[in-house]
Simulated scan of single mutants.
Amino acid sequence: MSFDLPRNVILPVDAVDVRLDPGPHPFALTNAAAIADNWRRETAANPALFDGTVVLLSELAYRDGRLIGRCHAVNYSTFMLWRKRRENSGAEHAYAHAMLVAGDNALVAIRMGPHTVNAGRVYFAAGSFEPIDFRDGLVDVDFNMMREVGEETGLDLSKAERGRHYHALSTASGTVIFRRYRVAEPAEELARRISAFVATETEPEIEGPVIIRNAADLPDGLMGHMKPLIEWHFAGAD
């Protein structure tokens, strides 16, 4: 199967069947020395980095409205080297975005904190899949979405209205799985609550909220995959 899905187009997704393989990822096995060397350089430049556990894909395909794939738990240090060697690596990255839609239809994103790998970049609150996000070996995308939003912004999305479907956008840099989460509060109120939460954190992951009110309202530092998602939302697509 490897990686067999359309690129650079937003796909409707009825279900995500991505399973966690207990074995090591081939990329981690064949690049152990380079991973260690690169991690020493990365942590020398940014001592705040933590070598936790994330997952990397070894297979992903789009079949009949479903994303089907296999992934493996790897150290974050492995992921950091893969970012530099992703072409023809036999590995890809998938992650999830809860697209936070305020009561006034504005989108509420976040800007990452200065000590993070993506410092200053703007996207929806999110993080890589981790082993905690899997149930009986199958990824729970909504659990990941709500967990990451809660950790980064303090917002509880458990009662938010979810979009009927997932959607996905696959590019050369990775595959984002996203879903609208609608709440009643206007964007300014959500931004106020996020800012208040960030102020209580000793080492917040994010700098603060970013409100996006239309498809032309693109903030500085916007991650490349975000523009088509923003255009999709304000076009009223589903």
Rank of each mutant, 00 (worst) to 15 (best):
A187K: 00
V141F: 01
I177S: 04
V139F: 07
F143I: 11
M145I: 04
V122I: 13
N118H: 09
V198W: 13
E87Y: 10
M226K: 04
E207Y: 08
A199D: 10
I206L: 12
N88Y: 11
F178S: 04
A33R: 15
I177G: 00
M80T: 01
A126L: 05
H115V: 12
R162A: 06
Y62S: 04
D64F: 10
Y181R: 01
V108M: 11
S158R: 14
T53L: 11
E148W: 03
V210F: 00
I212E: 02
F50E: 15
S173L: 09
I212V: 14
G90C: 12
P24R: 08
A237K: 13
G154M: 01
R135M: 09
R7F: 08
W82H: 06
S89T: 15
G224V: 12
A48K: 07
A32Q: 14
R41T: 15
A94G: 09
R66T: 09
L60M: 06
Y166I: 01
A199W: 05
N144S: 09
R162K: 12
L107E: 03
R85H: 14
C71G: 07
H233W: 14
G221P: 03
Y181I: 01
V9H: 04
V13K: 06
F129C: 00
V141L: 05
H97K: 03
A33P: 08
R162W: 07
A119T: 06
G208W: 05
I35G: 07
H167I: 02
P204I: 05
E207F: 07
A91V: 05
V117W: 05
N88G: 14
P186A: 05
L155R: 05
C71S: 07
M223W: 10
G163C: 06
I212A: 03
I206W: 03
L20I: 13
A33W: 12
G23L: 08
L56F: 04
A119H: 09
